[in-house]
Amino acid sequence: MSEYEKITSVKNAPDKEYYMPGHRTCAGCGPALSYRLVAKAAGPNTIFIGPTGCMYVANTSYSCGPWAVPWIHAQITNGGAVASGIETAYKTMIRKGKYKGEQPNVVVMAGDGGSVDIGLQALSAMLYRGHKVLFICYDNESYANTGIQTSPTTPYGAWTTFTPAGPVIPEGKKLFPKDNPKLVAHGHPALKYVATASIGYPVDLMNKVRKGLSMEGPAYLQIHATCPKGWQFPADQTIKMAKLAVQTGMYQLYEYENGEYKLSLNIKERKPVYEYMKLQGRFSHLKPEHFEKTQAFIDGRCAEVGISVPVTTES
């Protein structure tokens, strides 16, 4: 791992933008904010790979784009593979004297579908081969660009157009979500760094980006990017929702390095998941037993990474 400049506070965060104004993302879009923060942290010597998804279609509609750095489209299936090709090309061209310059940051910005589902194979192979690439999953918990359909990170009980609630299926989504950070963390020997982040904690997010880029090998960062359209809450609540996810344990912030989990926040109390879920239209059809099931599932997820504080029970 090489040195990197840590950002100490919002006030001291760098002014320079590399994700400029002008993109067709939702007002209050969580993933758009994550892109801005990632680009800001990564700086000018960066190449972005954008698999198909909201952050492709919305950002490049039409025949344009907001990045001040190079960017290329990839299929939703192959972000990891395209990034591997770019990283390898630069490594080879520099060695053979065909390119005069430094190895650039190579960063994939893929949605949850392009990371955990249809894009999982390419991600895993990239991590296995040890390419120096930072693979970022902006997790908005659905296939959002196609109008909100279920993905493997969609929470249990969430309404999507493929998991609508009805008399036959009262909870809507019956399946519990995959845990991609843990899935990739155990079993890829060349993987150097795994972390989760949230747009509600921007300084922590930007530092994790820089830390990931400083590794001499692949890194995986999953960012919780709240989605007002898909989860059905007002656009100005995007940040509050992100913080509440962490405060209820619905999203856990940690790093996984050298075989150990390191929590990013000192959580003193854990609010019940109901406090978070009741604010989102996608859970409005759920009954008490569904919330209980979610609470039990989240309790387990928290325990796995060492969040030991119990849930605050309501009075």
């Binding site: 400029m20 002008g22 067709r24 907001p66």
Partner: peptide, 19 residues
């Protein structure tokens, strides 16, 4: 191939103030 230069100030292709 439809390739455009990366904007350094703002993206004139999608001006969003009218939203």
């Amino acid at each position: 191939a439809g390739t455009v230069p990366s904007p350094q100030v703002d993206n004139r292709g999608m001006v969003t103030g009218s939203w």
